[in-house]
Amino acid sequence: MPLTSEQHHINYLRIEQAIKYLEANFMSQPDLDEVAEKVHLSPFHFQRIFTEWAGISPKRFLQYLTVDYLKDKLLASKNILEAAESAGLSSQSRVFDLFTTLEAVTPHEYKLHGSGIQIEYGFHPTPFGICLIGVTERGICWMSFLLSDEDQRTSLEEMKAYWHNSVFHQNQQLTQEFINQIFLQANTTKKLHVFVKGTNFQVKVWEALLRIPSGHITTYKDIAQLIEKPKAMQAVGSAVGSNHIAYLIPCHRVIRKDGILGEYRWASARKKSMIGWEMAKGESRF
């Protein structure tokens, strides 16, 4: 029986703690018994919940996050992106179907900062911790993950500041349907739609991020080339960091060209867990 979102969340908190421990002690390369002890679990229990969460063993998962593996993955992913671009992403011959489509606010709406937009929101457990999701009739307009020391009010205020002229209403039942579709693969034939507010440049970067398939990664340089702005890597990095729809607009799939994963708006440990989790899911399909 598949795990529920709540079970995924509980397991994730332990797994994030383990990843943080491995981050802090990477020079000594602690074994799994030591990591299990630090998260207050037996090695058997830790191995079991990790495998339930990721679908693979902790040892295999950590191999995905090594610099050498990520460098090789960057090359493979670049080839896929180039093939998709040459095939024409808007054509019937495109290499992969976009799971998520994007619509941006109009210039007039951008000036109004969300005036007249109604946003239904909810807090939900996910495989990567508690998230806040906001939904409008035009699509998902917000997704963020709570940091370990952050309460729901802080996250909600951040969303309200971003869409500060909008009307907000908590609707857990509605937003749960979107969470199920995103993380539990419910209604997999139905595409998700995101509704964003940003500059023309930011929107171009976010559209480029949607071209990165799950289980693959890319670099800021490759994104800059993809949007035909090869010298704008710093601006690309800023646009990636300002993404307000976590996971769905996959800014976590952008890493440094040297294979270092780098920082993440919602914690570097979460970025590592997302990348490894997606690679594991891709492996399990073959």
Rank of each mutant, 00 (worst) to 15 (best):
A186R: 14
A186F: 08
A186L: 13
N187I: 01
N187M: 10
N187Y: 12
T188W: 09
T188D: 11
T189V: 07
T189W: 03
K190M: 11
K190F: 02
K191T: 12
K191P: 04
L192C: 05
L192Y: 06
L192P: 03
L192K: 08
H193V: 02
V194Q: 01
V194Y: 01
V194N: 05
V194D: 02
V194S: 03
V194A: 05
V194T: 14
V194F: 04
F195R: 07
V196N: 03
K197F: 09
K197S: 13
K197T: 04
K197R: 15
K197W: 09
G198A: 04
T199P: 03
N200S: 14
N200F: 11
F201I: 01
F201S: 00
Q202R: 09
Q202C: 06
Q202T: 08
Q202E: 15
V203F: 01
V203G: 03
K204R: 15
K204P: 01
W206F: 05
W206L: 01
W206A: 00
W206K: 00
E207A: 14
E207Q: 15
A208T: 02
L209Q: 03
L210Y: 05
L210H: 10
L210F: 09
L210T: 10
L210N: 12
R211V: 09
R211D: 06
I212Q: 05
I212H: 07
I212V: 15
I212P: 00
I212L: 08
P213L: 05
S214F: 09
G215T: 08
G215Y: 12
H216R: 11
H216Q: 13
I217Q: 10
I217K: 10
I217A: 05
I217Y: 02
T218G: 10
T218E: 07
T219L: 03
T219E: 03
T219P: 02
T219G: 04
T219M: 03
Y220M: 08
Y220R: 09
Y220H: 13
K221D: 09
K221V: 11
K221N: 07
